[in-house]
């Protein structure tokens, strides 16, 4: 700043962001994106965080949200940047938030970010999912083969039905990792996928599942009961997946 004396007082109240990672489990997985984000925002009010608002007559809380999670999917990584007016310690914020959240939603961790950090909404482009398949969808071999075929394809066209329009999209460039194996409890087949989600477009786990189920010869619609879980959200930096909670960690927040 060109005139440090004039701004000196402002340094301590310079806009900060509280980046919070939430988990969404149990009954909360049936909340839509808008219900979930409304709930996080009103919970932050209950927590008494020093939130920043914009707009005079109808104040709007300033937040940035990670890409929507489909209804029915659980997650341990739903990110929100709350814009703050004042400093609050992340540990205090975490406690206050934890007390203010309804059942099924928890805080995984919190971190303060400087005002120059890119907000989560503009940062995230990748999501990792783990999918537990119902036993009637086939065995490990079927799914491993399906994954192999999928990864070997240059183009994976799928009809994407949206409320306004239906179009054919190529899923392949948005699928970065895909594996099939036996889950940790040894019971059933589990898939792991890393997909485009956010600023570079979105491939839904159900879309990949639909194609794979077809390739694996699974019974019609049987894959719909699969339990999908979002494990992480990332920003791709070259070939690396970087967590938005790790980004800029070496720079002081304040």
């Amino acid at each position: 700043m060109s005139c440090p004396h004039r701004y000196l007082e402002f340094v301590t109240v310079e806009p900060l962001r509280l980046r919070v990672q939430f988990a969404k489990r149990g009954k909360a997985r049936y909340l839509s994106h808008s219900e979930f984000s409304r709930t996080l925002m009103i919970s932050a009010r209950r927590a008494g965080l020093p939130l920043q608002y914009s707009g005079k007559y109808r104040p709007r809380m300033k937040v940035s949200l990670s890409p929507p999670l489909p209804i029915g999917v659980t997650s341990e990584c739903e990110l929100v940047d709350f814009f703050l007016e004042q400093y609050v310690s992340p540990a205090e914020a975490e406690q206050a938030l934890e007390r203010s959240l309804p059942d099924g939603i928890q805080v995984v961790r919190c971190r303060l970010m400087g005002s120059d950090a890119k907000p989560v909404g503009k940062l995230i482009d990748t999501a990792a999912y783990r999918v537990q398949l119902p036993t009637e969808t086939g065995n490990e071999g079927d799914w491993k083969r399906a994954v192999e075929i999928f990864l070997g394809m240059e183009v994976v066209n799928l009809e994407r039905v949206q409320p306004r329009r239906t179009r054919v999209v190529d899923l392949r460039p948005g699928v970065h990792e895909l594996e099939a194996g036996i889950g940790p409890d040894g019971s059933g087949v589990e898939l792991f996928m890393v997909l485009d989600d956010g600023t570079r477009g979105t491939v839904k786990p159900s879309e990949v599942l639909r194609v794979l189920a077809d390739l694996a010869g699974a019974a019609e619609g049987s894959w719909r009961d699969a339990l999908v879980h979002r494990e992480g959200l990332f920003a791709r930096r070259g070939g690396r997946l970087v967590s938005p909670l790790e980004l800029g960690k070496h720079r002081p927040a304040v």
């Binding site: 219900e35 709930t39 209950r46 309804p102 059942d103």
Partner: peptide, 9 residues
Amino acid sequence: PSRYLGCEW
């Protein structure tokens, strides 16, 4: 589905 969940705040 949230109409039938309960467990609100």
